[in-house]
Nucleic acid binder design. Structure first.
Lengths: 344, 344
DNA sequence: ATACATGGTACACAAGTCACC
DNA sequence: CGGTGACTTGTGTACCATGTA
């Protein structure tokens, strides 16, 4: 912290015995002070502490890790970290882990690629992380559990529950159902859907929620428009929808898609929300400032990250492998100006 | 990788001597194989390798770090990781570091807070990272160099050059000058500026570039509108500008601000670009899909991250402290439909 | 005789911990 | 309370002796 490198006369960074010598105590006593052993006279403790400060002594992490078999590090395997969702989750993870004294090693794996993810996991395991947090889309790997190191506590913060692993996830289905129901309530007789990237649990669940709501209302779902997570895909879908006079409402799988949709509809002179209502999913910070402000579903992803870390810390502390717990975070409908009753 | 935990008969994970025993060689030979020592018979090498595979042996990172004094880990101190800019840089950093065999420990420090950053640095240093990469806004710390651990290779990937440290940064000034010049060329007699968050080098430099261009054209700069990095601040600025008939062009310090501006102007019935031209900075993925598509400045931040890692790796390998190098990444003007000639 | 390939031993790295006084 | 000494964690490595080609 001071920048000036305090060291022993010998020139090398101080070690525990240097502290002991300086404080006039033994190796053992310094260790007791450092690890909060009860039977240490306050005066001794203070003398040791002073020696530590004067020498600028810092415990060597590697040596501790070697003997304690703990690194106070958790590995995080994530994908698509440039997207708003994943990056929010990661932020929550990093903060919560840091607050608990753990560092996070992030390893991004670009694809929905099972072997890629497993390779990252192996690398992190080799690095000696105490636990593992997965946020990559993994629903395609039903036997994931068997492919992970058995002795490495692991939790998921993904789109949905993962077989055999504790996980935290948002109830995307409920969120999508809620927006769709909103539109139906406002009088729309048909609601279209622009899907997220194939292979993502989030995409499948949101589509599922949309279907659920339609089914409950007795409306037959029109074909899903092939999508993705970006504005470009939304734009393409929007151009297609603009030419269809029957369309009065569109549920997009995320806000970026909705942004692209809005652009395409405006370009074609289709008024939102008077002729077509549009909704998103995520509530990205800028979605309140689109034209018109976007009706969407807010999901507290930082909380998902926090809770996932909490779950992991429980495993790290408890040691006992209780049944895998699945925590569900409920999203919240945010109604803005991009939705309204259909034209008559 | 297999998930089945291969271990010695004793039940504990295999260590080097287990491999040696199994291969019928010595401790020393295994080590030589592992570290690529030249004088090893191919046949022996193979026998050792087979033993390693059969036992599922993995070298213990902590033990290696203890003796080699290298962890193959770099620490990254970042702030505002939820913003598009920082998160792009981080992505480049993570990928480049991973490709070079280094893991990254991310430590986010929320504020433009010098002590906060230094605390993160100290924690990472204690963790035994081999090098440090700073992406937090740090121009306020002219004597930063003296406050950092002297023996820890450190580079910056920030808004601008940092005294005494190697760094990679985008030439924000040139970027801002280029957009401003574009507007002047198109005939605008006055160009306003909505600034970024105070305390950020990026914000200061972009404002500087705007001023430079105006000065070169002999135009007196109107007061900067207080800003930030979010759409909300842009919206506020936009409401103020909408009422000013003299305003025909606005340079925003980033795309989010521009998005807020567009929203406010549309709300007030001000046509973009026919009455007012608007530009951003960043070229976020969705900026091509705003209405109208945003003229902006693209900066290759992933490259900034990559190059910063490259600089760091040089220091880690070379050892020799050459003069701090500053690499500058030149941004690129992206002209879209949000700009045009002023109304006559 | 001269490389090369390997074994054996010993110690270092820095901290944690146990038994005993 | 706290000192002493010995031993542990898993690798890296220097040194020196061997054996083989």
């Amino acid at each position: 912290m001071t920048g000036t490198e305090v060291a022993t006369p010998a020139g090398r960074p101080p070690v525990m015995t240097d502290v002991a010598r300086r404080a006039g105590v033994s190796h053992q006593t310094v260790s007791r002070v450092l690890n909060g052993h009860p039977s240490i006279r306050p005066e001794t403790r203070e003398r040791v502490q002073r020696a530590i400060d004067e020498l600028g002594y810092r415990r060597n992490r590697a040596a501790r890790a070697l003997v304690t078999r703990r690194t106070l590090t958790v590995g995080v395997v994530a994908s698509s970290t440039s997207l708003f969702g994943p990056s929010s989750t990661l932020h929550g993870v990093e903060r919560a882990a840091h607050a608990a004294g753990y560092a996070t090693i992030l390893s991004t794996s670009d694809a929905t690629d099972r072997d890629g993810v497993l390779a990252r996991v192996a690398q992190l395991s080799d690095r000696g992380v105490d636990g593992l947090l997965l946020t990559a889309p993994l629903h395609e790997v039903p036997d994931l559990r068997e492919h992970l190191p058995a002795d490495l506590p692991t939790v998921c913060a993904t789109g949905g529950p993962v077989t055999g692993l504790p996980s935290v996830h948002v109830d995307h289905r409920a969120g999508a159902r809620a927006v769709t129901e909103l539109l139906l309530r406002q009088g729309h007789r048909e609601v279209r859907h622009v899907g997220g990237s194939p292979g993502w649990f989030e995409a499948a669940e949101r589509e599922g929620g949309w279907r659920d709501a339609l089914a409950a209302a007795g409306v037959a779902p029109a074909p899903v428009l092939a999508g993705g997570w970006g504005a470009a895909e939304g734009y393409v879908a929007g151009l297609a929808l603009a030419d269809d006079p029957a369309t009065t409402a569109v549920v997009a799988a995320n806000d970026q898609l909705a942004l692209g949709l809005l652009r395409a509809l405006r370009e074609r002179g289709v008024d939102v929300p008077r002729r077509v209502s549009v909704t998103g999913f995520d509530d990205a910070p800028e979605s309140a400032y689109l034209s018109p402000p976007l009706t969407t579903v807010r999901q507290d992803l930082e909380r998902v990250g926090r809770e996932a870390v909490g779950l992991l810390l429980e495993r790290l502390a408890g040691g006992v492998a209780t049944a895998p717990e699945h925590r569900v975070v409920v999203p919240e409908l945010v109604v803005r100006a991009s939705t309204g009753p259909p034209p008559r």
